[in-house]
Design a protein around this nucleic acid. Structure first.
Lengths: 132, 132
DNA sequence: TTTCTTGCAAAACATTTGCAAATCG
DNA sequence: CGATTTGCAAATGTTTTGCAAGAAA
């Protein structure tokens, strides 16, 4: 998408990017805005959403949908899976090499031109599994 | 979830269920409401959303999230994959037997207790691939 | 009667948009 | 200067909620 565009990192975009890069979780736009506020950055909602779209299209972050209505952001942009805890909604990520060939299989099973794959698991995180 | 609850299919819930069952696509709540209206059913928004949650928990339909902000509903409740067209947003479904063992693999790679898997592909539908 | 469901409207979220002012190149 | 970006507020789209009225067990 934006490989051919020059990468313009404004102060706002850089702050949003840093917030995602330094996070050890997968924050939503609202959480990013809250954390920016805590660090003294008071950007407009529209600006943060703009930045998030820009960073996503630039390939610097990845969107992540886990079905809770909000879009989460991931500093990792390589192929990997996520698992959401059904109880506390914590999100963990891990690699699943066994999934690598699935895109080819899907291409054979579907009449679509397959371009990308999202692999999302649900279950219980260690803490919640323990108390359940 | 609801195996132990009795299944109470009110007129509203039945109409919503029928609408999903008879659809050959994956309608959102808004689309279901629109189609109900076209058939002379004028239910409150809250009632339709209530029905959808009820039917989902009863295992009669399945929720489907494709990252477009709205929740889609699927008459199929067995394990299968979906693919979304990046251009026209059409959703197709297909079986991918090769994915069956992935839950076990994920259980080994993650410290979560894995309970379910969602496999979503993105790409171009035949029509869009043709015009692209 | 007790419990669950509906209808309606308002509220709650997440996200987008319009437009003027500010900034970048 | 022209193009892009920001800030702000209002609008949009999806889903939830509160509460009174209605239906079912």
């Amino acid at each position: 998408m934006s490989q051919q565009r020059s990468l313009l990192l404004t102060k706002q975009r850089k702050a949003v990017l840093d917030m995602i890069t330094e996070a050890d979780d997968h924050p939503t736009a609202a959480e990013i805005i809250e954390r920016l506020n805590n660090r003294g950055y008071h950007f407009a909602y529209g600006t943060v959403y703009n930045s998030l779209r820009y960073l996503t299209e630039a390939g610097l972050v990845q969107e992540l949908h886990v079905g809770d209505g909000a879009c989460h952001y991931d500093r990792r942009t390589d192929d990997h899976c996520h698992i959401v805890c059904r109880q506390c909604h914590a999100i963990a990520e891990f690699d699943l090499p066994e999934s690598a060939e699935l895109v080819q299989h899907a291409g054979r099973r579907s009449d679509y031109e397959v371009q990308a794959m999202t692999l999302l698991f649900e279950g219980l995180c260690p803490a919640c599994a323990h108390t359940a």
